[in-house]
Amino acid sequence: MSERTMVEALRLALEQEMEADDSVLVLGEDVGVDGGVFRVTEGLLDAYGEARVMDTPLAESVIVGAALGMAIRGLKPVAEIQFSGFTYLAFHQLESHAARIRWRSRGRFTAPMVVRTPYGAGVRALEHHSESREAYWAHTPGLKTVIPSGPRSARALLVAAIRDPDPVVFYEPKAIYRAFREEVPDEEETLPIGQAAVAREGAEITLVTWGAMLKRTLDAAEVLADEDGVAAEVIDVRTVSPLDAETIAVSARKTGRVAVVHEAPRSFGPGAEVVARLVEKVFWWLEAPVKRITAPDVITPYFAREQAYLPAVERIVAGAREVLETEA
């Protein structure tokens, strides 16, 4: 057991999977010699050579499409797209091919591949480097969309994603790449894809979130406990799609009050799906309307204003109080 940042934890996952299975390889822009712009793949080139750590040309569509071809040929490629804002160039490959090859070939060919990409605001980056668009991928049948919330879940979920028989878009919350350390076991650890976790137990309100917003939501829960004496339950969704609605519903039945926190824009966002599932499954248990505490439906502003754009702890606390104060 040692303390690791998320970057180190992700690297541990890659190292151990590459060590254990020679069908695992890494490809992307600057992932080899440079070790990736966030250094997630640092050291892999020296350890595994250029056939397995491929510094590709600057071409996102073929990075993802070639990964698909490798997967069809029996490998387990992990493609890195440098920033999620550049994944759209590969949209066709994911939506039209990776997500469909199993279905189209009636199970004959499959796409056990991972597309890792850093997403989200909070690191004072340029335009196109701060968006949170997990809904695009979650909306595509055939894909899985996984978002870790800390070093330990990042490592365990990446291992699971690499071993998963279906294509996984692995969204890495870059705002917390190095923001804090966690104990990450040296020995193998995986977490099931498609399963949410209760990150903090409580009986009075459920706060549903994922990725970089988990830390803020836990901080908000702490404020609610300290200042209001309210026990908030916090759900770490971990897999946006296939969504584990059951874990969320169980909590909602217990608390009767729910807020969803995400940094993606609100409309048609992933929070809307969470709310819809709750309305379908636990409507009669709800004591107040479900609230969405999200980024507004605007283009992610340049970084001078990004903290105002992101759900801040104050906003999460205020939103939760609103839900708590509503009389049935």
């Binding site: 070639a66 990964a67 071809g69 069809i72 490998l75 490959q93 060919f109």
Partner: peptide, 25 residues
């Protein structure tokens, strides 16, 4: 034989990936 791919040219990235996989092996 991979199944028919309809959007023009989008089959080509997978083709080179399969080829890389074959070479890798």
């Amino acid at each position: 034989d991979l199944p028919i791919a309809i959007p023009v040219a989008t089959q080509l990235p997978a083709a080179v990936g399969v080829a890389y996989g074959a070479k890798y092996r």
